[in-house]
Amino acid sequence: MYDSGKIITGLVIFVALFASPFILNVGGGAPAVPQPSLDTPAIKSMGNPVCVRENMQSNHMQVLDLWRDSVVRDMNHTVPGIDGQLYEMSLSNTCMECHSNKAEFCDRCHTYAAVDPFCWDCHIEPPKEG
């Protein structure tokens, strides 16, 4: 092995570069998952706030996709909520009525998850709360 010094040096550099992300991340921990703020006037005015659907935090994209397909393809505009009341299938009129602070409620989690939802390509973004 005439080039053993070069090979060993190359392997050490390779292992150092490969391991550096793991070494630098030790002890840093994962950033805290943001919790959506339920501190809006509409939610505060409710005695016992209940969302239209169960598990919205974990399944909201699937629910909104189903709502979109139901409204656009089937012309069905209402959905029964978990309280039995009929609600309009509308991001702007139903969801954003209670969750009016988009920056606090939507954007924090989407930024954390590195997700760029296309909801606002069609829907009008709610006015910013001052």
Rank of each mutant, 00 (worst) to 15 (best):
L64Q: 02
R68E: 12
N93M: 03
L64V: 00
V52A: 10
I82K: 02
S58F: 07
T78L: 14
A19N: 03
F118N: 12
N93A: 04
F22K: 10
M89K: 09
S70G: 05
V26E: 07
G81R: 02
P31I: 04
I43R: 00
A32N: 12
N76L: 11
A114V: 14
P117M: 08
C119V: 13
S58E: 12
S45C: 12
Y87Q: 04
A103L: 08
C109Y: 02
S58T: 13
P117N: 11
D74P: 00
M96L: 13
N76S: 09
G47I: 05
C98E: 11
F105T: 15
G28H: 14
L66D: 05
M75C: 08
A114D: 15
M61N: 10
C122Y: 14
L86A: 14
R108K: 15
V52K: 09
C106W: 03
C51E: 08
N25Y: 11
C95D: 02
H77I: 06
S58W: 06
R73V: 14
R73P: 00
M89F: 09
I82V: 00
R68D: 13
P36Q: 10
C98R: 08
P49Q: 02
L38H: 07
K44S: 11
P31D: 11
M75P: 00
H77K: 10
I23H: 03
W67P: 06
D83N: 06
E54V: 15
D83H: 01
Q85E: 14
P126H: 01
V79M: 14
V79D: 11
N101L: 06
N55Y: 13
C51L: 13
D83V: 03
D74V: 00
A19Y: 06
W67Q: 08
P49T: 04
I124W: 02
V26K: 13
I82C: 02
P49I: 03
K44G: 07
D116S: 15
N25K: 09
G27W: 15
M89C: 12
E54K: 15
A113E: 11
S37L: 05
G28N: 15
H77D: 05
G47N: 09
M56G: 06
N48H: 12
D74I: 00
Y87E: 09
V115Q: 05
I43F: 01
R73G: 09
S58H: 07
P49A: 04
N48C: 10
V79A: 13
W120V: 04
C106G: 03
W120Q: 05
D74N: 08
N55H: 12
M56P: 00
V33Q: 01
N59L: 09
G81A: 03
A42I: 04
S37C: 07
I43N: 01
I124R: 03
A30C: 11
T94A: 01
D65K: 11
T78E: 12
F22I: 14
T40Y: 00
W67K: 03
V26W: 13
N101K: 04
Q62W: 05
P49R: 03
C109Q: 07
P36T: 12
V79G: 04
C98H: 09
D107R: 13
C119W: 14
F118D: 14
